[in-house]
Structures are given as structure tokens and as C-alpha cells.
Design a protein around this nucleic acid. Structure first.
Length: 273
DNA sequence: AGTAGGACCTGGTGGC
DNA sequence: TGCCACCAGGTCCTAC
């Protein structure tokens, strides 16, 4: 499941392969994943790749932008030669002088959309983009910021708050669980009930978990690979996610799971209160 | 306004 | 062996 560390890894792994290259041809196999006119991409030169939350943004020479969201099973991968499309490859961008970007997505939740220079980054798949919350870095996730958002969403569970992209951009189910474990906070706690010391733990855990995950090039639990088809490494560092019934590495208690905010939520009953 | 839950989508898995 | 129900989850939409 691509969350911020995975999207960031895709970005950095693709950049050296695609920077300065021209899109020679756009091959569409499923039209519903590309929300803008394919012909507008042709002849554009890729001048950069940025990330905001879980969104990947390719920049072009005419100042237009291609927004991509991998959702659950989306992949953007680079090949030196243009490979035969896989079963779920929906879009391919043939590059000049060489190479090919392939968009592959089994569940077809992911979307791509090109925005004209200066055009608002809004639309059916990207409506929430301009309302995204803070990036999970230490400079933005302060105790004061968390205090304010927990007050505004006092009744929501802290797990639901972490998954809210308008509060913190880029966290998903895996990292929300890992962050709450590291902070020692039970996922079902109401956000408004957190004490100052707990908010301090959270403010420390959020940037720390994300930074460690980026360093290990993300988490490959099922499908995820980066732009060069490489798996991530953070799955070896997971403490609670996907470890139901296993023993906590800190206290030895059995890891438990519950349904929260519509998501499977794993936690250690011994460490998280 | 804030919160919760369903819809979207397909492949893998487990039960019978 | 085959069939089917169920689960995975990011985001949008709707209802309360």
C-alpha cells in the first residue's frame, strides 16, 4: 500500500531515469485511469518530479503538471526498453531518447491527471489536494499543531485523525499503526483525551517512523515496488502491522487487532494505553 | 461542522 | 476440485 515513504521512493528512484526526457508517445490501454487528454502529454519534456502527501507530481517544460495517485496497487515503473504491457498496465509513456514509464494498477483505484500551467489542482480524483494537511516532518508536526487538531477533532479516534489527509498528509494504515505503537498510544483513544506528554510522544514518533521508512525505501507488504521494480525494506521493521497473534518485541504481549475507522488496526495491548 | 460508513476494484485465501 | 464469501485499503460521497 503506497503511503508517503513509498511514493517518495518511487519519486527518487525514477528521477535520474526520466529527467530531461521527452514524451514521444502515449499508449492508453484503459482510458478511465487518465483523466485528461493524452495528446497534451506528447512532446513534453520532464523537468522534475515532486511529491505532496501521497501524490506524485511530474513537472513539464511548459509548466503543466501530471498528478498521479497510486492509491492501493498503483505502480509507476521505468524500463530502458518499452516492455510488453502486463495484464494490468493501463498507460505507457514512451520517452526520447530512450526508456518507458509504465502505469500498472491491478485494482484500478489510481488516477493520473494533467493540469495546464497555473490550473488549479482540483478535480474528481484530486479534489482534496489543495486541502492537504501538514507533511509528517518535525518542522511541521509540532506539539502545538497536534494539540490544535486534536481539539478540533476531539471525538474522533487518534487512529482516524492520523489517517485524515487534511490533518497530516501521507500517512496510511501501516504507518498510522506503527506511529501509535512507537508513541505508546492506544489507537481507539479519542483525540481530545490525549495528554500533553502523549502529544509530545506522537510529535516525535510521526516524523521518526516516516523518516526511518523512507531510509529503508518503504514497506513491501504485498504489491509495492519502486520505480525500478525494487521492493522496500521497512517490512522487517514493522512492530504491529500485519503481526496479529505474534509477540510484541518490546514487552512480549500478543499483538491484537481491531476494526477502527473502517480499517484493520493492529496494536500491542501491553505497550499502548 | 464533524464523524461514520459504504462504494469503488480485483486477486488471494479459507471454508465447505 | 470447484465454488463462493470475505478481506485488503485510499479517497470520495452521502447520511446522520
Amino acid at each position: 500500500m503506497p503511503e508517503l515513504p513509498e511514493v517518495e521512493t518511487v519519486r527518487t528512484s525514477l528521477l535520474p531515469h526520466i529527467l530531461g526526457k521527452r514524451i514521444a508517445k502515449v499508449k492508453i490501454r484503459r482510458e478511465d485511469v487518465l483523466l485528461s487528454e493524452p495528446s497534451r502529454l506528447e512532446d513534453r519534456i520532464i523537468t522534475g518530479a515532486e511529491r505532496r502527501g501521497k501524490y506524485l507530481i511530474l513537472l513539464f517544460d511548459d509548466n503543466s503538471r501530471l498528478m498521479l495517485h497510486l492509491r492501493m496497487t498503483g505502480r509507476l515503473t521505468y524500463n530502458e526498453n518499452c516492455p510488453e504491457p502486463e495484464k494490468h498496465t493501463h498507460v505507457q509513456l514512451l520517452l526520447k531518447p530512450a526508456g518507458c514509464l509504465s502505469w500498472t494498477d491491478v485494482r484500478r483505484f489510481g488516477r493520473l491527471q494533467q493540469f495546464a500551467p497555473g490550473e488549479k489542482l482540483a478535480g474528481t480524483a484530486f479534489g482534496g489536494l489543495e486541502q492537504l494537511g501538514s507533511e509528517p516532518v518535525a518542522s511541521e508536526i509540532t506539539i502545538e499543531y497536534l494539540e490544535a487538531v486534536c481539539k478540533r477533532h476531539a471525538k474522533a479516534s487518534i487512529k482516524a485523525l492520523l489517517l485524515n489527509q487534511q490533518v497530516i498528509a501521507g500517512l496510511g494504515n501501516i504507518y498510522a499503526d506503527e506511529i501509535l505503537f512507537q508513541a505508546g498510544i492506544h489507537p481507539a483513544r479519542a483525540a481530545g483525551s490525549l495528554k500533553h506528554t502523549e502529544l509530545a510522544s506522537l510529535a516525535e514518533a510521526i516524523p521518526d517512523v516516516i523518516a526511518r521508512a523512507i531510509k529503508l525505501r518503504g514497506t513491501t507488504f504485498r504489491d509495492y515496488v519502486d520505480g525500478e521494480m525494487r521492493a522496500g525494506g521497512f517490512q522487517k521493521s514493522l512492530c504491529v502491522y500485519g503481526r496479529k497473534g505474534e509477540l510484541c518485541t518490546v514487552c512480549g504481549t500478543k499483538i491484537d487487532c481491531m476494526r477502527l475507522a473502517g480499517r484493520t488496526t493492529c496494536f500491542c495491548p501491553g505497550c499502548q494505553h
